[in-house]
Design a protein around this nucleic acid. Structure first.
Lengths: 232, 232
DNA sequence: TGATGTCAAGAGCAGTGCTCTCGAATACTG
DNA sequence: CAGTATTCGAGAGCACTGCTCTTGACATCA
């Protein structure tokens, strides 16, 4: 634990950072499939084999980028939501939605890495779970706040969720304390709708059809707020 | 146009079919990224360069698989919907939803090719547009039937869509004649929710959370039917 | 100073998409 | 029917990939 050892570790950490930075730039330009260890090494003035001292395989580098991506997205969502007045529940929900969409538009390849087709043969390790939940945590807090302040009134036009999904709802309840199965079901549905919209826009399904995408997105997300029972 | 020419063209068509069949099998096992022209050629007992007589590039082979995929999915949706009683509008909608989900579960890699992250550098050619719309056509017909028979009554809990998306709605109205902007907006939202759900399930976002997926899916899709205004 | 561990470099393996050339077989035409 | 034109499979080759292994230089520590 001498100073010299720390020095070595520091240069090592610095190199790892530089590698991921370059890799992220390549990812942003060429997408995940075009990410090449050799190209990253070339840009660093290293020989390709040296990279393997820092990332044992290409998948490990991808994992690092995925974790960074989840954190970047989560941070964007947290910041957007934190800028809203606490009592403006619908505004907080809309801020979350817009933050997801805008981050996706700004970083399409990274977004695809997180929410697009899984990379074949790649299995996300445990380390990705916590960062992946940052945005959901924010969302859950909004619903929980609405419940706690007695301001969640979901319109009674949906059937009750079937008994059998109760254990699943229970697993989600940790994020939304005090929520009924119905509220939890609506929340998960709204969440999938949010990401479904962003997916459709980013992956080209709206091409030649929906052109006023920001307005359309806002309108649908506002409707979801109503379905969730958030106040107008 | 003699018989011999037809003979050559026939063997050519047969070879193309065989290549796509083998490629589809490889795709189902290894995913799009693992699809290798050389491997396909090897399995056919050909030399790799010979494949290029039939598909000028790997992307062209991928395009063929994408078109086949859209057609297979579209056919599955058409068949499922055709098996329903015409007057059972909600049943027809649910049949469409389930057909999409079940086809996706049965062909995850092909589904990912259609609705997952776009393959980098790959641009879908015109030929894919028509097959890609087969499922949407079925869906549009259900809503159009509901309107035509006066049985579409969307609950009035959503805000009106903003004026600015009217041109987009107009573009969709070809699929759902007689629909208001509000109905069209709800339809597109429901459609994205359907695919958002299937994406989340197939791409792993429900792992360790939602385990009773068929039941959850059915419940959410039933809720969407209510939002669309389909009769109970 | 000498032992230990870390590192970059280089060669090499097996695989990829793709191009080009060269004979041979097939189809069309005078 | 004979000659020409077209199509096709085979093979070599280019540039690239991820990854492994060995070698020699360097810094760290006892």
């Amino acid at each position: 634990m001498s100073a010299s050892r720390t020095a070595r570790e520091r240069v090592r950490a610095e190199l790892i950072r530089e590698i991921t930075d370059i890799a992220r730039r390549h990812l942003a330009v060429d997408g995940a499939a075009g990410l090449s260890l050799r190209a990253v090494a070339r840009e660093m003035g290293m020989v390709s084999s040296a990279i393997y001292r820092y990332f044992p395989s290409r998948d490990d580098l991808l994992t690092a980028l995925i974790i960074d991506g989840y954190n970047a997205l989560g941070e964007a969502v947290e910041n957007a939501e934190a800028a809203c007045a606490r009592e403006d529940l619908t505004g907080r929900w809309l801020a979350v939605c817009r933050a997801v969409r805008e981050w996706g538009l700004a970083h399409p390849h990274e977004y695809a890495l997180l929410y697009g087709s899984p990379v074949p043969g790649y299995r996300a390790p445990e380390d990705t779970i916590a960062p992946a939940a940052r945005d959901i945590l924010v969302f859950g807090k909004i619903i929980a706040d609405a419940i706690a302040t007695g301001r969640l009134n979901p319109p009674a036009i949906l059937p009750e969720p079937p008994e059998i999904i109760s254990p699943d709802a229970e697993a989600v309840r940790g994020l939304i304390p005090g929520a009924s199965d119905d509220v939890i079901t609506r929340s998960v549905a709204a969440w999938t709708n949010l990401y479904g919209m962003v997916n459709f826009e980013l992956f080209g399904q709206f091409n030649n059809t929906i052109e006023h995408r920001a307005e359309f997105f806002d309108h649908v997300m506002t409707g979801l707020a109503r379905m969730l029972g958030l106040p107008e």
